[in-house]
C-alpha cells in the first residue's frame, strides 16, 4: 500500500513538472480540458499546433508505457454510464473553465480563489456521487 502512495507522489511530481515546464517555457496553464476544449469550440486560434502536439504526446507516452509495463483502467463496462459521465465531464469542465489539472494542480498552487472553489466542489460532489451510486444504489 505505501508503495502505491510513493508512486503517487513521484507521478505527481512528474505531472507538476510538466505543468511548470508548460507555464515557464510556453507561458500557458496546463489544463487538459482547456487544451482540448478550445480546439473543439474554435477558440484555439494560432495555438492549434501547440495543443495538438501536447495531446499527441499525452496519448502516445501512456501507450508506450502500457506496452512496456501494462496497466489496468478498471473502466466501467456500462457504455451508457460512460457516455453520461463523459458528457457531464465535458460540459462541466468547459463551463467552469478547468478541471483537475487547470483548477486543481495549476489553480490551487497559485492560491487562485476560483481554482480552490472549483476543486472543493468537484471533489465534494464526486464524493457524494460515489456515495450515492456505490453505496446507495449499488450501481458502481
Amino acid at each position: 500500500m505505501p508503495m502505491e502512495w510513493l508512486m503517487g507522489l513521484l507521478g505527481g511530481l512528474m505531472i507538476g513538472s510538466a505543468a511548470a515546464l508548460y507555464l515557464l517555457v510556453n507561458g500557458r496553464v496546463m489544463g487538459a480540458s482547456g487544451i482540448v476544449g478550445q480546439m473543439l469550440d474554435g477558440t484555439a486560434g494560432k495555438t492549434w499546433a501547440e495543443r495538438l502536439v501536447f495531446l499527441a504526446a499525452l496519448i502516445a507516452i501512456p501507450a508506450v508505457f502500457y506496452l512496456a509495463f501494462g496497466a489496468e483502467t478498471h473502466l466501467s463496462g456500462h457504455w451508457a454510464l460512460l457516455a453520461v459521465a463523459g458528457f457531464l465531464t465535458g460540459i462541466g469542465t468547459r463551463m467552469a473553465n478547468g478541471c483537475t489539472s487547470g483548477h486543481g494542480v495549476c489553480g490551487i498552487s497559485r492560491l487562485s480563489p476560483r481554482g480552490i472553489v472549483a476543486s472543493v466542489l468537484y471533489v465534494g460532489v464526486g464524493m457524494l456521487t460515489v456515495a450515492l451510486f456505490r453505496h446507495g444504489l449499488g450501481w458502481l
Binding site: 496519448i59 501512456p62 473502466l75 459521465a85 465531464t89 468547459r94 478541471c99 472553489v117
Partner: peptide, 26 residues
C-alpha cells in the same frame, strides 16, 4: 458557470473515475 460546471464535472468524475487528462491518456 464556475460553480455549476464544477458540480456537473464532479458527478461525471464520480460516476466514471475519469477526468479529462486521464481520459485522453488511456
Amino acid at each position: 458557470p464556475l460553480v455549476l460546471g464544477s458540480i456537473l464535472f464532479g458527478v461525471g468524475w464520480g460516476l466514471s473515475g475519469l477526468c479529462p487528462g486521464p481520459a485522453m491518456a488511456v
